[in-house]
Amino acid sequence: MVTAGAGLQVRELTVVYHHVATGVNGVSLTVGPGEMAAIVGPNGAGKTSTLRGIAGFLPRESGAVKSGEVRLDGRRVNGLPVARMARLGVAMVPERDKVFTELTVAENLRLAGRRLSKGEFRTSMEQVLAVFPLVEQHLERLAGYLSGGERQMVALASALMGRPRLLLVDELSQGLSPGVVASLADSLRQINAGGLTVLVVEQNPALAAELAERLYILDGGRLVAAGTAEELRHQGEIARTYLGVAIGGLGANGGRHGDDGRPLSVQAEESA
């Protein structure tokens, strides 16, 4: 938030599981400092594998980066231990098990910010709670008792506590109600506006298109297309296949658009 976002370059990233099964194969993508990009694609497209390839694997996990490289502000960082990546400023919000359910919300945040000085910690806390005011009401609850949306907020808040330079979010909206998603999207935009680089995996192409400057479409472990929503819209086939009708002309909400031609969901958030 205060820290300037880092630039991320991924070149020909190949992630394999158990040495053989391919998660992603030769994916390249770039997210400039302070940009927000989104990865979209069907189930099993390799979206999560891409994020994992950037954030790293644990030594005993079945997955590994087989080839390619990940650069953070030009520095080659792939192959580093997960915790080391975290200390370099890469914060990950995984799809599942995203909070420590046996810790209180306050402890979740304290853990994430434990490398900060006292003063920095206080500032971080204030900033994070300003973005996620709901979190403050739950500080003393065990995170395991929170709803899905509340967990997502706590997860994002924890990720931000450590003052990252790159935020990776695996599935922002999955399983959450539209109202919650709108509020989360709003928060994410606010975070990004503060200068943090964000790469989000999002199954809902309409939401992804609203959030991100650039979209990366993955399928079968490979990069199928990349570009702004505008550019992709002109590639009719791809827009129809991967983005549904969301960008191709019809909105996500049954095709109804607001007066200014933007999908209704965007306006709903703004009025919320």
Partner: peptide, 8 residues
């Protein structure tokens, strides 16, 4: 894994 993501 999550602990590692948080730098532990």
């Amino acid at each position: 894994l999550l602990a590692s993501y948080r730098g532990v």
